[in-house]
C-alpha cells in the first residue's frame, strides 16, 4: 500500500465509492459527525479525519486507525450530516477494505468477535450464542470474562447448549462461499 502519494489517490476512494454508492468528496469537513459521535472518546482519530485521510490519499492512516472498528454503527453522524454523506456506511467500507488489503487491525478483540459471530451463521444459519462466546474466548484468551453471568443465563433458558440448525443451512453456506469467491476474483 502506498501512502502520501497522489498517483494511487483514486483507487481506494474509488473502491469506497463502489461499495457505498457515494462520493467521498461530498464531505466538506464541518466536523458535525465527530462532535456528536458517542464513541469518539475511545477512537484514535476523529471520524471526520478518516474521511479527510481518504480524500487526500493518506490511505494507510485511514485503514490502520482504530476509529472504523470502534464505530458502533449508530448512524447519528449520517443522520446529522449537512451533505447527507452516510458516514456510517463509509466506515463499513473502510473496515472491509482494511480486511481486503490485509492491514493489521488495531481492535483485535472486536474483529475476533465479528469473525466468531459470522462462523456461527455460516455453520448453522443462525447466531448460536454459546458457540459464539466459546470461540471468541478461545481466540482472545479472555476465558473468564462474564463467566458469572453464564450459569444464570442457562437456567433462564437464554443460552441454549445446542445450536438450532436451519434447513437452508447449505443455502446460507453457499452465500458465504459465493461472497468470499467474489473477493478472491477481485484481488
Amino acid at each position: 500500500m502506498t501512502t502520501h502519494t497522489s498517483t494511487h489517490a483514486s483507487t481506494i476512494a474509488d473502491e469506497i465509492a463502489e461499495k457505498t454508492f457515494q462520493d467521498v468528496s461530498l464531505c466538506y469537513q464541518c466536523g458535525k459527525c465527530s462532535a456528536g459521535c458517542p464513541v469518539r472518546y475511545y477512537m484514535d482519530v476523529a471520524p471526520n479525519k478518516i474521511v479527510r485521510f481518504i480524500q487526500l490519499g493518506f490511505y494507510e492512516e485511514a485503514l490502520k486507525s482504530s476509529t472504523p472498528w470502534l464505530c458502533a454503527g449508530c448512524q447519528t453522524c449520517s443522520t446529522r450530516c449537512p451533505q447527507e454523506f452516510d458516514l456510517a456506511k463509509f466506515m463499513d467500507a473502510v473496515r472491509e477494505l482494511a480486511l481486503e488489503k490485509g492491514v493489521k487491525v488495531k481492535e483485535q478483540d472486536i474483529l475476533k468477535f465479528h469473525k466468531a459471530f459470522l462462523h456461527q451463521i455460516e455453520n448453522f444459519g443462525r447466531a448460536y450464542e454459546v458457540g459464539l462466546v466459546a470461540e471468541y474466548k478461545l481466540k482472545t484468551m479472555h476465558l473468564f470474562d462474564d463467566v458469572d453471568s453464564a450459569p444464570g443465563m442457562i437456567m433462564k433458558g437464554k443460552l441454549k447448549l445446542l445450536p438450532h440448525v436451519i434447513k437452508g443451512r447449505k443455502a446460507v453456506k453457499d452465500i458465504f462461499i459465493k461472497t468470499a469467491e467474489k473477493k478472491q476474483t477481485k484481488k
Binding site: G73, D92, L118
Partner: peptide, 8 residues
C-alpha cells in the same frame, strides 16, 4: 452488525 462491518 458482524456482516455489514466486514462484507457488504
Amino acid at each position: 452488525t458482524s456482516a455489514h462491518v466486514t462484507n457488504h
